[in-house]
Simulated assay, not measured.
Amino acid sequence: MSATGPELVCPAGTPAALRAAVDAGADAVYVGFRDETNARNFPGLNFSRAELADARAYAQARGTKLYLAINTFARAGDLRPWRQALDDAARIGVDAAILSDLGVLAMAAERHPDLRLHLSVQASAAHPEALAYYRRSFGIRRAVLPRVLTVDDIRAMGSQTDVEYEVLVFGGLCPMAEGRCFLSSYATGRSPNTVGVCSPAADVRYLERADGLVTQLGAFTINRVADGQAAGYPTLCKGRFKVRGEEAYIFEEPSSLNAASVMRQLVAAGVSALKIEGRQRGRAYVAQAVAHMRALRDAAVRGEPLEAGDLAGLEEGARSSTGAYRKDWQ
């Protein structure tokens, strides 16, 4: 955390979204290349090398940092895409690379010792001993903490490590252990950790039937909703299935993380950065989410009353949760 409070780190899946994030008040924006090296490798998203250089210039001119996510797990026997991504990140001059794979971390530390390294949430480092290992072995400066820790856990961790820590405050929730989700691959052959895609768009189907709208992923029916009800993007972890004769969300109901109500506690816990999720979302989402969280973050730092506002239109399933931050179970 800087003298003026935690950094607001914001998503951008396109150059237009990056400009929206910068203009709305982001301290830093994170992006990915248009390939399998980043965990949001969807068609129509991400940056070419030339676009990243332009983004760097736009952000730098406005005092905003640019981080590059190279956060998938490298393919055995072919490190070329990840090596090239690292080399290009250093050449273009990004402010940090966000990594998760041990081999890619080792390669980055060896090839580009001056490149600032952040540990991705995909690495699932949830305790001081893990952070100490990554710091000692690869020289990481910051870690994005997985969404399984309470505010008290985060506060306690800060007294036991010299690694900066970043937490997610708004966006999608995931019931899987961070960095360990291969569920999508059982339906489509592809998952976030392998090629950067959960529920690839080519495998998604929306079918209108007499009893409502049916969503499918590959050969699997994910959900069925009545006319007029919101139909979330079909992922297996947020699907509704029949178990023992009853239909239910057996992993997790569609909802979004919204840490607005614990913003003051997170700032007081000494976090270095607050992260908004959503590189697959459009620039309108980015602009609204960034402006909202900017106001909340600034009020929390100044000790002013927090105006909770309304981000329901941006939340998955129009529902939100504080996730584990207020966890009262053990």
Rank of each mutant, 00 (worst) to 15 (best):
M1I: 09
A3W: 06
A3N: 09
G13V: 04
G13E: 05
P15E: 02
P15K: 02
P15N: 01
A16N: 01
L18P: 04
G25V: 00
R34L: 05
D35V: 05
E36G: 07
T37D: 05
R40C: 13
D54K: 14
A55S: 15
R56T: 13
T64N: 12
L66T: 12
L68W: 13
D78N: 15
W82V: 09
R83L: 14
Q84F: 08
A85F: 09
D88P: 07
G93W: 13
G93L: 15
I98A: 11
A109F: 09
P113E: 08
P113R: 10
L115Q: 11
L115S: 06
L115C: 07
R116G: 00
Q122P: 00
A123M: 02
E129G: 03
Y133R: 05
R142W: 03
L149M: 07
V151Y: 04
D153S: 05
R155F: 05
R155L: 06
A156V: 04
S159D: 12
V167W: 02
V169C: 09
A177W: 00
R180V: 00
S185A: 13
A187W: 02
P192H: 04
V204E: 00
Y206P: 00
Q216D: 08
G218A: 10
N223Q: 14
A226V: 08
D227I: 04
Q229P: 04
A230L: 15
G232T: 15
Y233W: 13
T235V: 15
V243W: 04
A248F: 06
I250V: 14
F251L: 15
E253Y: 07
P254A: 09
S261G: 08
M263L: 13
M263S: 10
R264Y: 08
V267D: 10
L274N: 01
R279L: 10
A287H: 10
H292M: 11
R294M: 08
A295H: 07
A295K: 09
E315A: 15
E316V: 15
A324L: 07
Y325D: 06
D328P: 02
W329D: 09
